[in-house]
């Protein structure tokens, strides 16, 4: 097998293993007490971590556009509106600022 196919097959198999192990882990954690609160807070914390990582590692344009997107999200609660205004904001900041 060529090196490329080795990477494709290896990455595919092991990536599925990661997805499967996450599910198995979630199934095995207790559904009450600490682990229940831990698991129910996980989606929000993971999303916030992604957003923080994307904005903090960027330049000032990412931080400002992120702030604008937060305001739009709070006001409209709309996904398409937040995306559209966020993209226009980052494009304008990078082009003109």
């Amino acid at each position: 097998m060529s090196e490329t196919w080795l990477v494709i097959v290896g990455l595919a198999g092991l990536t599925f293993l990661i997805r499967f192990c996450g599910w198995a882990l979630g199934q095995r954690l207790p559904q009450t007490g600490f682990w229940a609160r831990f698991l129910s807070a996980l989606p929000g914390c993971l999303i916030v971590a992604l957003v923080a990582l994307f904005t903090v590692k960027g330049e000032s344009a990412e931080l400002i556009a992120g702030g604008i997107a937060v305001i739009v999200a709070l006001l409209t609660r709309s996904l398409p509106a937040t995306m559209a205004i966020g993209i226009v904001a980052i494009w304008a900041l990078r082009t003109y600022a």
Binding site: A41, P43, G44, C45, I47, V48, L50, V51, F54, T55, E62, A65, G66, A69, V70, V72, A73, L74, R77, S78, L79, A81, T82, M83, I85, G86, I87, V88, I90, W91, R94
Partner: peptide
């Protein structure tokens, strides 16, 4: 094209909808 920011903006909107109230403040 500013499209790298598309995912950041989308996740911001989704974080807004995942907010469960003041109990999320300290963890976030």
């Amino acid at each position: 094209l500013g499209l790298d920011f598309a995912f950041t903006a989308a996740f911001i909107a989704i974080a807004r909808s995942l907010w469960r109230g003041p109990k999320d403040l300290l963890p976030w």
